[in-house]
Computed example of a mutant assay.
Amino acid sequence: MTRTVSELMTPHPTVVEVTDTLRAVAQTMATQDIGSLVVAEEGTVVGIVTDRDLVVRGLAEGIGLDAPVGQLATDDLLTVGPDDDVADVVRIMREQAVRRVPVVEGGAAVGVLSIGDLAAELDPSSALADISEAPANN
């Protein structure tokens, strides 16, 4: 039986606007204990930003905390739909070497599918599944 993205995705992703500052985005990540956020422009998904982006493409390059997140967000974005076949999405993620993809319906984010989500469901005895399911470090 074919599995769909909606069965494995993390629903209700946190979405920030392209104009939100890096400081605000970092604070949102810290408050929610998450490492990536979907970036939208007037509600339409246009990118994704990770904690690594903030450090490597932001701080390390001297970009200030008041810069808009749109400046760092990955804009060559792979998105999937909630009804897409998981096997197809896994193949595409592998080919494009991406770790997470926004799940989009009608331009709006409805979820995120990560390799951690996939590991937890498809390979629950793997180290990645264990790490993904573990409580956050404090």
Rank of each mutant, 00 (worst) to 15 (best):
residue 42 E to L: 07
residue 115 I to F: 12
residue 108 A to L: 11
residue 20 D to F: 00
residue 56 V to T: 08
residue 10 T to S: 15
residue 15 V to N: 04
residue 12 H to T: 12
residue 55 V to P: 04
residue 50 T to V: 06
residue 113 L to T: 05
residue 88 D to G: 11
residue 79 T to A: 15
residue 110 V to Y: 03
residue 52 R to I: 10
residue 50 T to K: 07
residue 84 D to P: 10
residue 75 D to A: 04
residue 109 A to S: 11
residue 115 I to K: 15
residue 87 A to E: 15
residue 116 G to R: 11
residue 12 H to G: 12
residue 59 L to F: 13
residue 92 I to A: 15
residue 86 V to C: 13
residue 6 S to L: 07
residue 63 I to C: 03
residue 101 V to Q: 12
residue 117 D to Q: 06
residue 97 A to K: 15
residue 40 A to I: 02
residue 66 D to Y: 12
residue 97 A to E: 11
residue 54 L to R: 04
residue 93 M to H: 09
residue 99 R to P: 12
residue 32 Q to I: 04
residue 33 D to L: 10
residue 113 L to E: 01
residue 26 A to P: 09
residue 87 A to K: 09
residue 35 G to V: 00
residue 122 L to Q: 12
residue 14 T to W: 02
residue 117 D to N: 14
residue 38 V to C: 05
residue 39 V to H: 03
residue 6 S to Y: 10
residue 98 V to Q: 09
residue 94 R to H: 14
residue 68 P to D: 01
residue 21 T to H: 02
residue 28 T to R: 12
residue 65 L to W: 15
residue 96 Q to F: 14
residue 58 G to R: 02
residue 84 D to Q: 13
residue 44 T to F: 10
residue 98 V to R: 12
residue 41 E to C: 08
residue 40 A to M: 10
residue 30 A to N: 08
residue 109 A to E: 15
residue 58 G to D: 14
residue 102 P to M: 08
residue 42 E to C: 07
residue 20 D to A: 06
residue 20 D to I: 00
residue 25 V to Y: 01
residue 64 G to W: 09
residue 8 L to C: 09
residue 72 L to D: 05
residue 55 V to M: 03
residue 84 D to C: 07
residue 104 V to T: 07
residue 69 V to L: 05
residue 17 E to W: 08
residue 23 R to M: 06
residue 27 Q to P: 02
residue 105 E to G: 02
residue 99 R to Q: 14
residue 98 V to P: 09
residue 18 V to F: 09
residue 36 S to R: 03
residue 103 V to I: 07
residue 39 V to T: 09
residue 48 I to F: 07
residue 53 D to N: 14
residue 77 L to F: 04
residue 43 G to H: 13
residue 55 V to K: 08
residue 103 V to T: 13
residue 87 A to Q: 15
residue 105 E to H: 03
residue 82 P to H: 13
residue 66 D to H: 15
residue 57 R to T: 00
residue 120 A to K: 09
residue 32 Q to A: 11
residue 108 A to R: 15
residue 32 Q to H: 14
residue 51 D to C: 07
residue 112 V to C: 07
residue 107 G to S: 09
residue 55 V to I: 01
residue 110 V to K: 00
residue 35 G to I: 00
residue 66 D to V: 11
residue 14 T to N: 02
residue 15 V to H: 05
residue 77 L to N: 13
residue 12 H to V: 11
residue 10 T to E: 13
residue 42 E to M: 06
residue 30 A to R: 13
residue 85 D to N: 14
residue 112 V to Q: 08
residue 32 Q to P: 05
residue 78 L to V: 05
residue 66 D to E: 11
residue 35 G to S: 09
residue 58 G to Y: 06
residue 5 V to A: 04
residue 12 H to Y: 05
residue 82 P to C: 05
residue 118 L to A: 08
residue 84 D to F: 11
residue 17 E to N: 08
residue 13 P to A: 03
residue 56 V to S: 03
residue 114 S to C: 14
residue 8 L to N: 14
residue 122 L to H: 03
residue 35 G to N: 10
residue 44 T to N: 11
residue 6 S to I: 13
residue 19 T to Y: 03
residue 9 M to G: 01
residue 36 S to K: 01
residue 95 E to T: 11
residue 112 V to E: 09
